[in-house]
Nucleic acid binder design. Structure first.
Lengths: 116, 116
DNA sequence: CCTAAATAATTCGGACCCGAAACGATCCGC
DNA sequence: GCGGATCGTTTCGGGTCCGAATTATTTAGG
């Protein structure tokens, strides 16, 4: 477990990484889209629209729209669940894995360079 | 300086705090608004529209609009610079300080509870 | 079967954000 | 003073997101 972060260091970390995300002129993700992306890539599958909506405490259309947008960006794909065709399963992509990996590296780097 | 975060821990931290922000049904801030808010509260004053725009690498109207929104939320205030009335100076508020402080606590808590 | 429940998607009106350009106010050098 | 430069705001057309309600598809139960 890492040594405790003081609040000022915690905020500095959040500030620095947020600036990295803004300065990188990738398409901006909303907070909700970011939450969906990280849920899909960090939590174990399967991921359904309903499950993601419940996890985030938002309505299902929010998830559908987030998946529309992130699907157009190539960050996730959707497939019908063949064992229960009411469900839609969200899958990871290579592009999404790379984007998440880059975010992890950014956080790690900013964390390592925090002032004492 | 804190011990190094592994990328998986870094991403878990970002995931957890992002979820906290989404679940707390406060008005959502865009990434850019978050960047402006943290710049105002973490970097030393004075803060001008032009300075913030340069720091974030965005156009001035982006800052003006972010200040409009965050001003309506009570997170910041604007005042004319009396020594150069072309400038607008961005000031902190009690509500903004509290919001930033709560964010810092959330990050600290999530960081402390990261899996090994 | 055939109805009721569950799931994801779509529609609707309204609000917000964007970039680029134009605008008004203010300052500064000559 | 005056003209150009600087600063913040506003306008414009277009796009995205929102919540709530509705729809279409599929499953499960009697």
């Amino acid at each position: 477990m890492p040594i405790d972060l003081r609040p000022s260091q915690a905020l500095r970390l959040w500030h620095d990484v947020t600036f990295d995300l803004v300065r990188a002129d990738l398409p901006e993700l909303t907070q909700r889209q970011m939450a969906v992306l990280l849920a899909v890539y960090l939590d174990p599958p399967p991921h359904t629209v309903r499950g993601l909506a419940a996890k985030l405490g938002v309505t299902k259309p929010v998830i559908t729209r987030a998946l529309d947008t992130m699907g157009a960006m190539g960050l996730v794909t959707r497939k019908r669940d063949e064992s229960d065709r009411r469900n839609v399963l969200v899958h990871r992509t290579v592009a999404g894995s790379l984007a998440v990996e880059r975010l992890g590296d950014a956080i790690q780097t900013r964390h390592r360079n925090l002032p004492p």
